[in-house]
Each structure stands twice: as structure tokens, then as C-alpha cells.
Design a protein around this nucleic acid. Structure first.
Length: 413
DNA sequence: TGTCCACTGGAACGTACGGCTT
DNA sequence: AAGCCGTACGTTCCAGTGGACA
């Protein structure tokens, strides 16, 4: 065995070997559905009551479920739907359920084809017109006696992408069906979703509404405790970590997903150190790590002009000039474009790009007035120098410019 | 008190592109 | 293959503006 194979052998064995920490890593993923959902009894009961009639072959009300990310909407919906399907199976009810994530599906076509496959209608991956697929869907429903409960997760994605034709058709489908019935459970974390909807669709869709409140710190703790018991081995000490994770997540938006991520990354850090104690320090490190990764990821995926604008901000702040006005940034931006052989955009557009960077949190900018000297946006870098440098060094086109000293800076004192 | 700077940000319009229909 | 449509991204034009300064 040569040296390299030995090294790999070691690395792989590390993964295969017994972990000090994890018993079941999956339990900390946010798509994991435990068989008990703490602090969501009420929501489960209400949703169960709404969907219940479908068990007896009756049409139930359409429901719209709202709430911010990580409030347990998807988990509750899946939980109830799964139980509903199990119960239907038990009593031989003609009930079918279908759970589709609209954002993951991507297009109306794929959402619809997922619905088709839930009632055993086969449609090709591509090639058919939407209307044709919908007709097949309807005629299949018409030929059988089925009560179909459709859960559309991240339903807002369906609207934003391409109007609301599919939703409109779906909400009206019962008018054209003689034997079967379709009920819709829509899940959205965009609270403005209702405004974007055609009022006719909205009124049909939201016969019932359930709003999910964010979790508070104590509730988050209960959730984490429950998951931790499944995920971690006996003897692993994690109480302090859980407290901190809950506190951090509660201070943000009461996002359980965030809390779980923190705990998972903290645990992985502890694991890598070969420890069986997940400390508060691990959580702080995890927080940094997650933030770092998020920023690095957004930086990487930025379009080229936004990158150059950001680099301009970076370079000017690096050379200790504070109070970057849009004019300064634009001048440096144009200079960089010249060096890189890229056609610069107009100042109007760059001003817009700065706003976009601001929304992403990569820069902070606010409009200030300098009286006689005009009115402009004052912009500062919103992320650590280190991260910007790190990411841009990996970028072939940006690499050479990271140490560039703009001539423009010499022309102003 | 009025002027005037250096922009901001809305609006209309141009262009490229991808997907769908014919 | 060709035409159509919606969307994304940019440009051009311009009215509007907060506050230092004369």
C-alpha cells in the first residue's frame, strides 16, 4: 500500500468509525420529521379537524398555512398528511394525498406532473402542453372516485415564477369533477403572498387559515432537547449548547431551522475535536462558521459587475478613505473595468447595484446630504475584509485586482 | 432666505434570452 | 423553424431633494 492510499484509508475510516457524538445525525436536519412536534398541538389539532372530513369521502375546506421560516409549518403539514394517509389506508377510504414542494419542483409543469403521479397517471417529463397534462389529470380524476388532498409547500414560489394560472385552475377543478374531489393545503412563508394572488383564487384557497407564530427561546429548547436525544449518544453533554442555540435563534426570528443548524454545526465541530462535550464555545464557532459560509456563498454567486462594485468598495475602504460616496465608488469601478477590459455600466445602474448589495447585507449604505456638496449614498463594506479577499482570490477574473491600488484615490486628498 | 450640488430613484424604453406555441 | 410572450438586465431621461453655504 502506498502512502497516498494509506492517507485516504485513514480519512475514510474516520468517517466509517464510531463517532464520539452522533447516534443519528439525520435527526438534526430540518427536513427530519420526528413523531412528536413540541408546542404545535393546537395547530395539529386544527389542521386535523379541517382535513378530517376527507376521510369520509367528503370535500374539506381549502387551507392556507402561514408563518415565517422554521416555525414548523412543513413539519406539521407533513405530519398530519402522513397520519391522514395512514388512517385512510386503515379504513380503506378512497383518500389520496400528495405533498409537493413548489420551489423544488420549479415549474408548474413539474408540480402538475407530481400531482398526476400521486394518482397513478403517468406523464412524460417534458413535451406536453400544460393544458394537456391538466386535462389528463382531470379525466383520471373523473374516471375514479377519489378524494385528493394536495399540499403545496412554498406555494408562493409558484406565483412569483409564472402567474397563478395553475392555482386558478386547481381552485376551480371541483366544478368540473363529477366523482372525485380535490382539496388544497397551501403553505407559504411569504406573508405578502396574499396580495399577489388573484382575489378569486384567494377567496377559494383561504377558506381556512392557520398562522404559525415563531417559537420563543423555551420552545426552541424543547425542540432541540427532543432532537438531541435522538441525534446524540448517551453521555454526550449538550445542555449548555442547546440553551445558547435557542437563545440565539429566538433573538433572531424564532427560527427552529436556524437553531438546529447551529446545534448540528456545533456538534460537528466538537466531533472533529474528538470531544464528547458540545460547549458554548462550539456554538459561537458554529455561528461564525455559518455566517462565513453564507457570505462566501453569496459573494461567489454575484454577477461580475456586482463583484467589481463590491471590490471598489473593498479597495477604497482598504486604503483608509472613509465616507465612500457613490461618485467615488463609480470612479474606481470604471477604473477597474478599464483594467479588466470590461464595459462599465452607467452610474444609474451602479447605484442600483449598490442598493442590491445593501439588501444582501454585503455593504451598508444610506443616503446622506452634504448640503452644498450634494446628496448621495454613503456606503461601507458590510462583511469582513478577510472573507471578500478569500472568495475573490478563488475567482479567476477578480484575483489580479485584489491588490490593485486605484489611481483615482491619488487624485483626491 | 434662496441657491445649488451630487446625487437618488421613478418611469419609459431597448435588447437579449429562454420557453412555449404553432 | 418561426413567431410570440414574459422576464431580466440595462440605458436614457429627468424631476426631486436635504442641507451647507453665501
Amino acid at each position: 500500500m502506498n502512502k497516498q492510499i494509506e492517507i485516504l484509508e485513514d480519512v475514510f475510516n474516520n468517517f466509517l468509525g464510531e463517532s464520539n457524538i452522533f447516534k443519528n445525525r439525520e435527526a438534526l436536519r430540518h427536513d427530519y420529521i420526528p413523531d412528536y412536534l413540541p408546542h404545535r398541538e393546537e395547530e395539529i389539532r386544527i389542521l386535523g379537524q379541517i382535513l378530517g372530513p376527507s376521510l369520509r369521502g367528503m370535500l374539506c375546506s381549502n387551507v392556507l398555512v402561514y408563518g415565517k421560516t422554521g416555525t414548523g409549518k412543513t413539519a406539521v403539514a407533513k405530519f398530519v398528511i402522513n397520519r391522514l394517509a395512514a388512517k385512510a389506508n386503515e379504513i380503506k377510504s378512497p383518500l389520496r394525498v400528495s405533498f409537493v414542494n413548489c420551489r423544488l419542483a420549479g415549474t408548474e409543469y413539474r408540480v402538475l406532473s407530481a400531482l398526476c403521479s400521486s394518482i397513478n397517471v403517468k406523464v412524460p417529463f417534458t413535451g406536453l402542453a400544460l393544458g394537456e397534462v391538466f386535462d389528463r389529470f382531470k379525466s383520471a380524476l373523473n374516471s375514479k372516485r377519489i378524494v385528493l388532498v394536495v399540499a403545496l409547500d412554498e406555494i408562493d414560489a409558484l406565483i412569483k415564477e409564472r402567474g397563478d394560472t395553475l392555482l386558478y385552475e386547481l381552485t376551480r377543478i371541483n366544478e368540473n369533477l363529477s366523482k372525485s374531489k380535490v382539496s388544497i393545503l397551501g403553505i407559504s412563508n411569504d406573508l405578502r403572498f396574499k396580495d399577489m394572488l388573484d382575489p378569486r383564487v384567494l377567496s377559494t384557497l383561504s377558506e381556512e387559515e392557520i398562522v404559525f407564530r415563531p417559537y420563543n427561546a423555551e420552545e426552541l429548547q424543547d425542540i432541540l432537547k427532543q432532537r438531541a436525544e435522538i441525534a446524540f449518544k448517551k453521555g454526550v453533554s449538550y445542555e449548555a449548547a442547546i440553551k445558547l442555540c435557542s437563545a440565539i435563534a429566538a433573538a433572531e426570528h424564532g427560527d427552529a431551522r436556524r437553531a438546529l443548524d447551529l446545534l448540528r454545526v456545533a456538534a460537528e465541530l466538537a466531533e472533529r475535536e474528538g470531544k464528547s462535550i458540545i460547549s458554548e464555545d462550539h456554538v459561537y464557532q458554529a455561528q461564525k462558521r455559518i455566517e462565513h459560509d453564507r457570505v462566501a456563498e453569496t459573494l461567489k454567486t454575484l454577477p461580475i459587475h456586482s463583484k467589481i462594485v463590491l471590490l471598489s468598495v473593498f479597495l477604497i475602504s482598504k486604503h483608509k478613505r472613509k465616507g465612500l460616496m457613490t461618485g467615488d465608488i463609480y470612479n474606481v469601478y470604471c477604473e477597474l473595468c478599464g483594467e479588466m477590459n470590461i464595459n462599465p455600466l452607467t452610474q444609474r445602474r451602479v447605484s442600483g447595484l449598490i442598493n442590491e448589495l445593501d439588501v444582501m447585507g454585503l455593504v451598508n449604505s444610506r443616503v446622506v446630504s452634504l448640503g452644498r456638496y450634494g446628496r448621495s449614498k454613503k456606503t461601507t463594506l458590510g462583511v469582513p475584509f478577510k472573507v471578500v479577499k478569500e472568495v475573490f482570490l478563488e475567482d479567476e477574473r477578480m484575483r489580479n485586482m485584489i491588490n490593485y491600488v486605484p489611481k483615482y484615490l491619488n487624485s483626491i486628498h
